[in-house]
Amino acid sequence: MKKEKDLLICPRCFTVHKKLPLSKRHEARCQRCNEVLLRGCDTLEWRVLALSISALIFLGLALAFPLVDIDLGGVSSSLNMIDAISKLWGDGYLFIAIFALFVLVLFPLLLMGTLLIVSIAMILRRKRLARNLLILATTLSHWSMLDIFFVSILVALVKIYEYAQIRFDIAFLALALFVFIEIYLTRYIKLEWYWERWERL
């Protein structure tokens, strides 16, 4: 009888597969629907460690400094995420302010912080801690929306570029890098693969 651990069910078509050893840079695909089931990576936790630290630094920069400066008919202003949210709050738009605070600041910070501790816990073979934090990260990954916010900045600027002079700040680049790393850590590498790795600790 095969063990549960040695089987993998395709998330798309539910075909049951038997796991085979996977060397790095190789990927396992579903026989029926060709969905990527796993990507080989020997150093997953180290990669996550390095990238989540960088992501936290970039996010810190993106939150602390203005992202974009504009000059609109001689009046200049800048876009700072924390200021934007507190302005909404001050104007009485409580729901949008709280929503933005969670999906643009708290959840991204928590998600990256959690992945950082997950990687450390996996390196130190603290399976219980890693498991609890993986549960948290899986939940959070649906609700971190800085990638959408990044595209929204570009859309907003298109709306005003005719009237305003726009200058991108360094924090904008930091935000772009954060988004890039976040997509890599949660979409390219799927969180399920962290679980697979965790199982083999």
Partner: peptide
Amino acid sequence: GPWSLIDVFVVVILVALIHF
């Protein structure tokens, strides 16, 4: 799903940027 929020975030951004 969440990409529909672009419009809401654009409003957040414009509110922050434009104040005369």
